[in-house]
C-alpha cells in the first residue's frame, strides 16, 4: 500500500496549517541582573573574575565554566575595548536589502577576557579594522530599561 499509493498530483498534496502558541519571558538571572542594572543605573560594565583561571567574564556568569568555582569577585571593565572581528550586514533576515549597512562586531572590553557582541556606529566601512579601538555609547539614562539595547552601539574611540 505504501508503495502503490502516492500523491502524484501536486493538487492532492495537502498540509495542515497551525502554530505553536508560545512566547518567552527570560529573567536576566543572578549575574545578568547585576550586569544590566550596572548599565542601566551607572552606564558601566561589570564582569566577574575567576582568580584561579585568571579569566574575566563579560557578560558575567555566577560560575567559572573552566573550573566550576562560584564567582563573586566583580570587576569594572570597559567602556573602551578592541574589535576582535566584525561583519557588515547588507540584507535583513527576510532577504530584503538594508538601507544602511548594519555592522556587528565582537568587542573585547578592556579588562575582559570574553567578548561581547554589539553594533558599531559612526564609522565608515573603509575605516573598519580588526584591532580598532572602540567605546560604548549608552542611551540617555531615563530611556534605559536594563537591556542590551541600553547600549546604542560602539563607536571609534577617536571619533
Amino acid at each position: 500500500m505504501a508503495l502503490l499509493e502516492k500523491v502524484d498530483k501536486n493538487i492532492e498534496a495537502r498540509a495542515w496549517q497551525g502554530e505553536i502558541p508560545i512566547q518567552s519571558r527570560y529573567t536576566c538571572g543572578l549575574a545578568g541582573e547585576k550586569f544590566f542594572r550596572e548599565i542601566m543605573e551607572n552606564g558601566r560594565f561589570a564582569g566577574t573574575h575567576c582568580a584561579e583561571c585568571e579569566y574575566t567574564y563579560v557578560p558575567p556568569t555566577i560560575y567559572c565554566e573552566r573550573c566550576f568555582a562560584k564567582l563573586d569577585e566583580w570587576v569594572e571593565v570597559g567602556p573602551e575595548g578592541t574589535v576582535q572581528s566584525f561583519t557588515v550586514l547588507l540584507v535583513a533576515p527576510d532577504g530584503t536589502p538594508l538601507e544602511e549597512p548594519d555592522i556587528l562586531a565582537l568587542i573585547q572590553l578592556d579588562g575582559a577576557d570574553s567578548v561581547l557582541v554589539h553594533r558599531l556606529g559612526k564609522v565608515g566601512l573603509d575605516e573598519l579594522a580588526i584591532g580598532m579601538r572602540v567605546k560604548a555609547v549608552f542611551k540617555p539614562k531615563k530611556e534605559r530599561e536594563g537591556s542590551i539595547l541600553d547600549i546604542v552601539h560602539f563607536v571609534p574611540v577617536n571619533a
Binding site: W16, Q17, Q23, T27, G146
Partner: peptide
Amino acid sequence: VLFTEWKPDARYAWDAGV
C-alpha cells in the same frame, strides 16, 4: 526584576502525508 520577552513566529505547514 529585569527580564526580556520574545514571541517567536512559530507557524507551520504540516504535510498531511499519504
